[in-house]
């Protein structure tokens, strides 16, 4: 078994118009910038994107939105240092927004990956985000029913990867990446280094390879924060 692929274009070639794509990262930390840029080059459109944020500046997710490829965004916090791209498209009615509390977003994705179609959470009870959703009382407390979230494809970023798709992450860049890896039909991971099988201590594997479809090495991956400080624009 060898899940490694040699080109970014090949890695994202499975993405078709209209698909739901989860993109890992929290702000720029853990964002698979090179995979997102390959998706822009690939050209798929009418996408629904799941991410914590809505992009920053004119690279990564912001660039994908700026190119008009995203019809709907499911996120918790569509603000950033420079949210201009998303803000303008949203105000022009060109992109749909579903706001989900951050923990509910993570748990909906977890549930999607774990085969749990719905669950109850105290989060959002009595607020706008619970409108229209079933509620129930358990042990004297009120909860809101939330549904699982799944995707056709997840684009994630790891640190080390091997031919079986086992992954490690780097510091807080872990964030949504391991959860999204479980919730997509096809998970594509960019990693800083592909290592031989056995080089990752089994005790240190964070995402077991069963959740990963393709692994591509991107040495020295770009950091969104640094691209933005350099006022980079993609493409």
């Amino acid at each position: 078994m060898d899940k490694t692929v040699s080109s970014l274009a090949e890695a994202v070639s499975v993405i078709k118009d209209g698909m739901t794509v989860m993109i890992g990262g929290f702000g720029g930390s853990g964002a698979p910038i090179e995979l997102i840029h390959a998706l822009i080059d690939h050209g798929a459109k009418n996408l629904t994107v799941v991410n914590n944020n809505a992009g920053n500046g004119h690279v990564g997710l912001a660039a994908l939105i700026e190119q008009g490829r995203v019809d709907k965004l499911i996120c918790s916090f569509p603000r950033s240092a420079d949210p201009t791209v998303f803000t303008e498209r949203y105000k022009a009615g060109k992109i749909e927004l579903e706001i989900v509390p951050q923990g509910t977003l993570a748990e909906r994705i977890r549930a999607g990956g774990a085969g749990i179609p719905a669950f109850y959470t105290p989060t959002g009870y009595g607020t706008e985000v619970a409108e229209g959703k079933p509620t129930a009382e358990f042990d004297g407390r009120s909860y809101v029913q939330e549904r699982w979230l799944k995707a056709d494809v997840a684009l994630i970023k790891g640190e080390l990867g091997d031919a079986h798709g086992n992954l490690t992450y780097r510091m807080a860049a872990r964030n949504f990446n391991p959860v999204m890896a479980t919730a997509a039909a096809v998970t594509i991971a960019q990693v800083s280094r592909i290592v031989p099988l056995g080089d990752i201590d089994p005790e240190h594997v964070i995402t077991p390879g069963i959740f990963v479809s393709h692994v591509i090495e991107v040495a020295d991956p770009a950091q969104e924060e640094e691209l933005n400080r350099a006022e980079a624009v993609y493409p």
Binding site: P83, P101, P122, T123
Partner: peptide
Amino acid sequence: IPAVGGAMDLVQS
């Protein structure tokens, strides 16, 4: 533009 982040989770729990 609405933006909630983790606040709704934190305040309930």
